[in-house]
Design a protein around this nucleic acid. Structure first.
Length: 486
RNA sequence: GGCCCCGUCGUCUAGCGGCCUAGGACUCUGGCUUCUCAAGCCAGCUACGCGGGUUCGAAUCCCGUCGGGGCUACCA
């Protein structure tokens, strides 16, 4: 390996929102660039104008930003090899296609889609490798004129010479493809627009990419990229190194689907997953630091990540493990950071408007729930009792406070709390333990459940005494008397 | 069908010929703790796809087989 400075690219084709597989690739690309002190290049492969949309492109950009995968070259930040949207580089591809044509490395093919399909159909029937049969490889000027007279527009097709292509995949080792199974492929559509096969190879070379880390679905297209390098006259030493990352699959068997995880990153955001948790979890899919470490920060990832440690076998996406890591990351947050992440969820759910007084109370309450939630979207439910204007006990909990024993507990608690001069969780707990547990001889679970429901409205809440302290004496007493009136 | 890639607990993985009666994590089960829910702590369940080799010795090397996946587009 040369001492050339590493340049890694992430080059998605935004035909939809980026899913976890894409993001894992982006993460590895980024981590490798950072690990080697190289450049992380972000390129948009939007040559398929029928499937890529501006919205998806913008979403991809936003997603990388949200995850903290900052790129050194690419959309918005620019760079010496721009533009970084392939749709803005059409003239470059056209030039190279013409050069390949002039060199006879490529040729015009006038076969219609129907004709090609018919050929493939026959090949399948004959149990022969399907693929272009070279029909238009050696057309004469007359034949070309005849096709044009029919109104046919040709595509530009790359000539695959006999032989084999062997390359070293940094993850899988040496891989060889016989050209018998790599048919002449199309570089330019009949309408003159370039295809991935052309654009990806040209751009990787022109942009000085040294390492291509991408999904293993592209493994078998590598010989075609190499063929383009050859036609471009690129010396072997300047070919990028290839590393094909294993798939991230869904719970059951194959590809990810909406049901098991292939949803836009926006979904994870709305659910309250932290970017760091997503990256940490995804880093562990197809890679491991080699020891038992599983809690890995972004910084540690850049220090530890090497391609040698990437697996060759696919990994299944497991939401449960992601949740566990997210919970760990939430618990590790400082109160300030936890507030920063949580407040938007409280606002969005309408629990708070965002006033200074509300924020101050939220910050006091957050430590009570920090170790109780796995995702940020659970916060509103746990804290809403502190902010509701019109308090009401959950319908499924009412029956647990309107019976005789609960009422007697609440009555006693009410009189004890009314007399309390100092209102904090220590004094509240002391008073209630003395009266309810010691004097009335109640089980803590019984006594405090009644109070929990009366004051927070739910059978599940943050710790009771701390909750009551934050709620305030007035509110507690009025809620208890409300429960007493049931 | 053809070509290519892959194969350790349910899942993610450690393991790169002896340290493996296979370790860790998540999940699950049971217990402890306990004002609910969590968190925390302890314990338990469960794996080298199969069959041949090579070797004193194989999860680790080789072959075959089975299974999974990808590609086979004027998608990427």
């Amino acid at each position: 390996m040369s001492a050339k400075k590493v340049k890694v690219r992430f080059a998605p084709s935004p035909t939809g929102d980026l899913h976890v597989g894409n993001i894992r690739t982006a993460l590895f690309d980024w981590a490798y660039a950072r690990h080697t002190g190289g450049t992380f290049l972000f390129r948009i492969e939007d040559t398929d104008t029928t499937r890529v949309t501006d919205e998806y492109i913008q979403a991809a950009i936003d997603t990388l930003k949200w995850l903290g995968l900052q790129w050194d070259e690419g959309p918005e930040v620019g760079g010496p090899n721009g533009p970084y949207l392939q749709s803005q580089r059409l003239d470059i591809y056209a030039e190279w296609a013409q050069k390949f044509l002039d060199q006879k490395d490529a040729y015009h093919c006038y076969c219609s889609p129907e004709e090609l399909e018919a050929v493939r159909e026959e090949q399948r029937k004959a149990n022969v490798a399907p693929g272009y049969n070279g029909h238009c490889r050696e057309l004469t000027a007359d034949q070309i004129a005849a096709f044009k007279a029919q109104g046919r527009e040709g595509v530009v097709r790359m000539r695959m010479p006999d032989g084999t292509t062997t390359f070293v995949d940094e993850i899988r080792g040496e891989v060889t493809f016989d050209h018998k199974f790599v048919p002449d492929f199309v570089l330019v559509r009949a309408d003159g627009s370039p295809l991935y096969t052309l654009a990806v190879a040209v751009d990787d070379i022109l942009m000085g990419v040294t390492h291509v880390l991408r999904g293993e679905d592209l493994l078998s297209s590598t010989p075609r990229q190499i063929r383009v390098y050859q036609a471009m006259g690129v010396p072997l030493a300047d070919y990028p190194a290839f590393a094909h990352l294993p798939f991230v699959m869904g719970q059951d068997n194959a590809k990810l689907s909406k049901r098991n995880g292939e949803v836009s990153i926006a979904w994870y955001r709305e659910q309250g997953y932290l970017p760091e948790a997503i990256c940490n979890y995804l880093a562990l899919l197809g890679w491991s630091p080699g020891d038992d470490r599983e809690n890995i920060s972004m910084k540690e990832l850049t220090e530890l990540f090497t391609v040698e440690k990437v697996h060759s076998s696919p990994a299944r996406f497991d939401m449960k493990k992601l949740e566990a890591i997210n919970g760990d990351k939430i618990r590790a947050l400082s109160v300030e950071d936890f507030a920063h992440w949580t407040i938007p969820f409280l606002k969005k759910s309408g629990v708070i408007q965002g006033t200074d007084a509300e924020i101050a109370l939220v910050k006091q309450a957050l430590p009570l729930i920090q170790e109780r939630i796995v995702k940020l979207d659970e916060a509103p439910q746990l804290l809403k009792f502190l902010f509701v204007k019109e308090f009401a006990i959950d319908s499924d909990a009412v029956s647990k406070v309107n019976d005789e024993s609960a009422q007697s507990i609440l009555k006693r608690a009410q009189s004890e709390l009314e007399q309390l001069s100092t209102w904090n969780h220590e004094s509240i707990e002391a008073a209630l333990r003395t009266s309810l547990i010691e004097e009335m001889g109640l089980k803590p679970r019984i006594a405090f459940t009644a109070l929990r429901i009366a004051t927070t409205g739910s059978t599940i809440s943050p710790p009771l005494f701390e909750s009551m302290e934050l709620l305030g004496k007035q509110a507690c007493l009025s809620r208890i008397s409300l429960a007493l009136s049931l």
